[in-house]
Amino acid sequence: MNIQFKKGVLELCVLSLLNRKDFYGYELVDHISKYINISEGTIYPLLRRFRSEGYVTTYLEESQEGPPRKYYKLTDRGKEAFEELDIEWENFVNGVNNILRGELN
């Protein structure tokens, strides 16, 4: 998979998960790597960029199961960005499907 492409898709995936609930880093990495083959080390830089762009905020929470966890939470701006990316993705997928399975005219 092309590096740039993967990056964009990864952004979409992370934002969509955060849109549903707050995640801590490990949890996010774990969930995503179940479905797509990625270098898990690429997710933390992404989260850091999201933070500097104001898409996410972070907070620390103690955990009984182990060390304290840094949770990531989507902001309103982040939600906007997610929705835009989501629409782009839909369009892109539809476009590609039309090329793959559509009519030649």
Partner: peptide
């Protein structure tokens, strides 16, 4: 962040080797 990641992984029973591999080359 990576320290936290290692610690949580270890507490879930993963080996440090495994976690290093999954994270990928530190240079990258």
């Amino acid at each position: 962040d990576y320290e936290e990641h290692f610690n949580i992984g270890i507490s879930k029973g993963k080996s440090e080797e495994e976690i290093s591999k999954e994270l990928g080359d530190p240079k990258e």
